[in-house]
Amino acid sequence: MGRKITIEPVTRVEGHGKVTIKLDDNNKVVQSRLHIVEFRGFERFVQGRPYWEVAVLVQRLCGICPVSHHLCAAKAMDVVMGVPSHKLTPTGDKMRRLMHYGQFFSISCSSFFSFSFPRLALWL
C-alpha cells in the first residue's frame, strides 16, 4: 500500500481547493487530483430573483474578480431582455470595457503580489 499526500488548503489561488496525490510502494505517482470542495448553489438560488439583482448577487462568487462576474451577469440579462450586443449604447459598452480593464489590472496585481510574490521572492 502506497502513500497519500494531501495539500489542503490550496492557498495560491482564490477560492478553496485540495490536492491529493497517491503514490505506490516505489513512490511513483499513481493518481493526482484537484478537488473543488466548495459548493454554494448559485445556479439554484438566483432563480426567481428580480433580474436586476443577479448582477450584484453573482459578484460574490469571487473576492478577486467580482467585476468579471458582474459583467457576465449583465450580458446574460441583456439576452433575457432581448437586447443583442450591437444594440448596446456606446456609453454602456465603453463603461463595461473600462470596468473590465480596471478589473484586469486589479486582478493581476492581487494575483502577483498576494499569491505568487510571497513564494517567488520570500519563499514562504
Binding site: 459548493f39 448553489g41 445556479e43 439554484r44 438560488f45 432563480q47
Partner: peptide
C-alpha cells in the same frame, strides 16, 4: 430556504 437535494439536482 431551499432543500439541499433540489439545489444539487439543479446544479
Amino acid at each position: 430556504g431551499i432543500p439541499i437535494r433540489e439545489i444539487f439536482e439543479e446544479v
